[in-house]
Design a protein around this nucleic acid. Structure first.
Lengths: 150, 150
DNA sequence: GTGTTACGTTGGCCTCACCAACGTTGGCAA
DNA sequence: TTGCCAACGTTGGTGAGGCCAACGTAACAC
């Protein structure tokens, strides 16, 4: 890793947006290393998780639920379908839509990826106590909430 | 914007690495919108800041100090030099190196960008009290420190 | 001197995120 | 019913940040 290895201009080292960026990119690295074992990426996981959680949906719906652009959903679903983790079927009630559903294999893979994600959280938060982890989670959640109802 | 607009699989909404990612990407959006007015990007700012802070340096050094790959430093310095914000001169003491120095205009632009960054922090942290901002900063710093001396 | 290391540079690749455009299909209103 | 607009899936392109491999040149250690 590295990357952040050295230091970065000292002025930035205490800038919240910078800290956020650095920790997030560290987290992203850990996640993506974890996902590499599954030969899948973030988009795939988000889609599998959404399907596991709320059941079959159209691509547009999935995109909205996961915050992924329609066009990117197409590619990710192509990958997942190509590996048999997901099935794409025309919606007979509305022929504009495809209904995407999890297969058994897809549900399994989703669970395995969730475990990977769990492990990464432990790694990432290792230096913090449970109370501190909570605190961090709460602070971030508040930031997010504030900025999403803008 | 957007993007996170809707919700994302509920399971992820409480996952720290996800929260980190979302807040960081929100912050990055604000920053990059701010930088757009300067017609520069993150890499440029980091380089200007490093130069302002520690004086002239070789490209390799800058790269190490900013956590930017050598090859990406080349391009960013090209941009900065093309706009007269920075000067690239051969190092007569070591002919492998180029010495990069800030110009007056570069130092000015750096200061203006720093102000932009300041404003963005206020925006970003608006919902938090001063104590909470501190707390967040401390938590993130600890995470970063822990993971960087791995 | 000879081999190793550092430097700048070119060119490529990946992920995530967006946007524009197109043809198709549904729904709604005139 | 027709005509229009909105939504859907798809293609293709863009941009930012971050990496890696390779090359020629220059410095350095042995």
């Amino acid at each position: 890793m590295e990357s952040t290895g050295p230091q970065s201009p000292a002025g930035l080292r205490t800038t919240p947006s910078w800290l956020l960026n650095q920790t997030a990119s560290h987290a992203a690295r850990l996640i993506s290393e974890g996902f590499a074992a599954h030969e899948l990426r973030g988009y795939h996981y988000r889609l599998l998780a959404a399907l596991a959680e709320s059941g079959p949906a159209s691509q547009a719906d999935l995109g909205r639920r996961c915050g992924i652009d329609r066009s990117d959903v197409v590619a990710a679903i192509n990958d997942l379908a190509g590996r048999g983790l997901v099935v794409r079927a025309p919606d007979r009630a509305d022929r504009r839509r495809n209904v995407i559903s999890l297969t058994e294999a897809g549900a399994d893979e989703g669970r395995r990826m969730a475990e990977t994600v769990e492990r990464v959280q432990q790694d990432l938060l290792a230096p913090l106590t449970a109370a501190e982890r909570d605190q961090l989670t709460r602070l971030l959640t508040r930031l997010l909430e504030h900025h999403s109802r803008t």
